[in-house]
C-alpha cells in the first residue's frame, strides 16, 4: 500500500457503495478540534440550505461530532508511527444516497486496542433499543471521564440514535498498528 494514498485506499476497499453515492465531504489529514468544528458547521449549513429533515440533520451532526472527537482524542495518547501515519490523522468520507448518509472514518490504532474495541462494538451492535438505553444509563452513571474527556458513551449513543448497526474492520498496517475503519449509516 502506498503510504501517501493509504487512508483513502483503505476506505475505498472497505466501502463498496461509493459508485452510487454523492460525496459530501472527503478529508485526509489531522483531525483537530478546529477541523471537527469546521466540518460539522459546513455540513450543517449545507443540509439546512437543502431543507434536509431536521431529525436526520441532528443525528448526522451528532454522529460527526462523536466520530471526529474520537479520532482527535485518540491522537494525544499515541506515539507517532511514522511521518505519514501520525496519530490524529484521519480519513473521513461522508456520502449519501436517496435513502441514507454514510460516514466512513479511518484512523490508526495500536493492535493492543483492538480486542476491547471489537468487543464493545460487537456487544452494542445486536442490542435492542431498551438494552441500549440501559447500557447508556449504566455507562453514564458508572463510567469515568478519561483524561482526554472520553466518556465511553459515543458508540452507544451513535447506535441508539441512528438505529443502525455500525460496520467496522481492522486492517493490519505495520507490525504494531492497524487501520480502524468504521462505517456509520444515518437514514434520511
Amino acid at each position: 500500500m502506498n503510504n501517501k494514498r493509504g487512508y483513502f485506499d483503505a476506505i475505498s476497499e472497505f466501502y463498496d457503495d461509493l459508485p452510487d453515492s454523492e460525496i459530501i465531504l472527503a478529508f485526509d489529514g489531522d483531525v483537530t478540534h478546529q477541523v471537527m468544528k469546521a466540518f460539522v458547521s459546513s455540513v450543517e449549513d449545507r443540509l439546512e440550505r437543502e431543507n434536509e429533515n431536521e431529525a436526520s440533520r441532528n443525528r448526522l451532526y451528532h454522529v460527526l461530532v462523536e466520530c471526529l472527537q474520537n479520532i482527535n482524542r485518540h491522537a494525544d495518547d499515541q506515539e507517532p508511527v511514522d511521518v505519514e501515519f501520525f496519530p490524529g490523522r484521519g480519513g473521513i468520507l461522508l456520502s449519501r444516497t436517496n435513502k441514507k448518509y454514510c460516514l466512513v472514518t479511518a484512523n490508526i490504532i495500536r493492535n493492543e486496542e483492538i480486542p476491547e474495541l471489537k468487543e464493545m462494538l460487537e456487544k452494542i451492535n445486536p442490542m435492542k433499543d431498551e438494552e441500549l438505553n440501559l447500557l447508556y444509563k449504566k455507562q453514564l452513571t458508572e463510567g469515568q471521564l478519561s483524561s482526554k474527556g472520553g466518556a465511553g458513551l459515543g458508540f452507544i449513543d451513535i447506535r441508539r440514535k441512528t438505529g443502525n448497526k455500525m460496520e467496522f474492520k481492522f486492517v493490519s498496517k505495520e507490525k504494531e498498528t492497524s487501520f480502524f475503519l468504521l462505517n456509520i449509516t444515518v437514514n434520511r
Binding site: 451528532h62 453514564l140 452513571t141 471521564l145 466518556a151 458513551l153 459515543g154
Partner: peptide
Amino acid sequence: IYFNTSSSKIFL
C-alpha cells in the same frame, strides 16, 4: 441546542 456525550457526563 446540542451537547456531546462527554458533556452528558458532566450534566449528570
